[in-house]
Design a protein around this nucleic acid. Sequence first.
RNA 1: GCGGACGUGGCGGAAUGGUAGACGCCGGGGACUUAAAAUCCCCUGAUCCUUGAUCGUGCGGGUUCGAGUCCCGCCGUCCGCACCA
Length: 840
Amino acid sequence: MTEERFDPSVADGRWQRAWDEAEVFRADSSSEKPKSYVLEMFPYPSGRIHIGHVRNYTMGDVLARFKAMTGHEVLHPMGWDAFGMPAENAAMEKGVHPGGWTRENIANMKAQLQRLGFALDWSREFATCDAEYYGHEQALFLEFYKHGLVYRRESAVNWDPVDMTVLANEQVIDGRGWRSGALVEKRKLSQWFLKITQFADDLLEGLDGLDKWPEKVRLMQENWIGKSTGLQAHFKGVNFDETIEVYTTRPDTIFGASFVAVAADHPIAQAVADTNHEAADFIKLCKAGGTTAAELETAEKLGFDTGLKVAHPFTGEDLPVWIANFVLMEYGTGAIMAVPGHDQRDFEFATKYGLPILRVVAASQADADKPFEGEAEAGEGIVVNSDFLTGLSVEDAKTAIITRAAEDGWGVPKTQYRLRDWGVSRQRYWGTPIPMIHCDACGVVPVPADQLPVTLPDDVDFKTPGNPLDRHPTWKHVDCPKCGAKAQRETDTLDTFADSSWYFLRFASQPGDKPFDPAEVAKWLPVNQYIGGIEHAILHLLYARFWTRALAHCGMIEVKEPFAQLFTQGMVTHETYSREADGRPVYFSPGEVVRDGNGATLKDDGQPVEIGRVIKMSKSKKNVVDPDEIVARYGADAVRWFMLSDSPPERDLPWSEAGIEGCGRFVQRLWRLFGQYDANAQGDDKPLARKMHQTIAAVADDIEALSFNKAVARIYELTNAAEKAAPSASRSEAIRALMLLVAPMMPHLSEEAWSRAGMEGLIAEAAWPEFEEAMLVEDEVTIAVQVKGKLRDTLTVAKGTGKDELEALALASEKVQRNIDGAPVRKVIVVPDRLVNIVV
RNA sequence: GCGGACGUGGCGGAAUGGUAGACGCCGGGGACUUAAAAUCCCCUGAUCCUUGAUCGUGCGGGUUCGAGUCCCGCCGUCCGCACCA
């Protein structure tokens, strides 16, 4: 009966079970077919799937299914990025164990993913909190240690003096701890670091080869690495007995330097503070402010004159030394030579404190004494007022001064990176224990390989803040593996970015005795298509690239770049509904609101609510939709279709109730059309056949390019055409092709239709339809006829009609003649199969 | 502050320098129905002197026979910036 409706509540489960039983999505590493590794960034098990996950995984799923249909052996795995702060927060708030909480979340989310019918190889699933996984991670960490890629040094953390806890940046709000509200202090702790800077150049150069990554991400990484070349110059103290090392990328402007500025935690600043209360207070003030680049650079420039003087290395002139809040100890030498004329930050600072602003670069020699117009001039020009550099270009002056500095011995050329080593120590429980032991006699001793994994203790207490590992009565007390004396375990755990830096290798193979099998890694890696959010553009992707290089450095793998092709998808957004109450907005969820054409009202009281901007879905704004709910209402295929429709995948997708309903209707429309498949229909329908071949070719290209919205539009067009066409063999063929075309996107509907039409096997294992090249070209084309560039008429002619004939036909047009109105024709431009433009 | 992206109907968006608005959503009209739902058909950028024409892709210039697309200068919005993942 073709009139029945497609019922996802029955069909979805049926086909999910069928795929599972037939092990359709299990990757076979012994397959002869070309491999395709499709990977979406694995989720943090927060408890519920977010609609953003659905979008991400739907895209990957379409590609994975398409690759399988086009003859590839596909690896499409899924796992859990299961360590992290939310589990500890839950433990503190609800008194549940992080492990139990995480496992429960994983079970829930896995069931949610399965209801969406994703073509995942669940046999390779793991969570990073599995002792097996993090034990191998510890082994890799020790391998890095052995190869000199791991070291320990002091580094500052955010310290909450009330909760006695280290805080993440996001837990510091306006300089105060998020729970205690106490003023956060900087405290130095001895912490573990990975030497990512050793690979700075390699990571930078590697970006050139990643031509299938978004330009934007490559640029972000390039800026992050921040390679610069410049001069490190020595500025000798005049009234004190030390030299300040200054790094500058603009040595050409050295004659414009009017003071030297050091960071608040620079040794010189510290020394001054020891004897000067005002300086100490100022340093305190600097440390109270934010530490991120954005905060530092937007904060008001503040400084303190130390009274110290240094000598300009070339002129010998005295320059004052200031402590400035915009100078970073972490970058360069922690001290700068300030050139207010040609650096905006220095300019603001100099203006505020009345320091000299000198011009040493100008458009031409004639402008050598031109005053500044309220801002620094950081651009190109020629050097002026600069002794032997005067008259040189900025570039030439850089070379000249660096050479001179080296000759005179007051400076050296220096390549500098913004990239800093990766601090991996976290003073937390729910992470991979760092496998080190501290012995009073032997110092730091790695945990021997046969004692791995170092597992987390289960009996931990979250009632008091701080690191439960450190407080645990027995866990940290061990014997030194070297001398046997009483020693202590390292109680810091690894940054969770470590866990996500090699999970894609573990998916390729999961031996018990080692992290991965090199042969399997060689077979599957690199990941052919990696898909995830733009928020990971820098850290995760850079750390994963580093980790892969580090493994190659240790001789464990060959591949250097883990992700051949990267795609960053947009967010799912929704408008917000709110009312003002006590000066703060109170938000309502879409389910509590009735939306009509121009406004929205609350269901409860029928009174209007304010419609806010369309923004990323977030719990705090309540503009979220629950994937389970919509899958239950419309079926997995309608939800998947909506995720792919309309918005280009890299852009934000605005969620709408009307949109998902439209998708639900389309599922039923296709169902009715598929029901009209008739294997015995006779007769040709050339235009429909042509449309079908064109659509098959175009949809394949669109999916390869991840332009799902375009593929969707083309499928609509073919559906419209097939619906209108009279029964024929061509029409049945088009219907069959449509089943296959939508199979990666709406797998349940297409399986159901495929089986109802009496086709062999599962559509998930069917081959992508073939198209005939000859059928792609039209034999008639529509030619635009313009007069002076404006459209006046169109002509329908045989494809390939000659230029002269087209010109004659165009001039013969009555509409054209009317618009020419007797004026002499000056020129006629003819583009065959496209247009004729008559210029009068 | 630095870096980047984006700007086209009521909305999401199409458009190798060559007919702007494909496709979808919303809306309007009609058919079917006792009625509704579902479904189907038609219309849907703006304006006007409406068999036709003019204007129209954030704003201002430019290149070109021809610009949403290329160039220059503005304006606006959004995103990232090292312990969230």
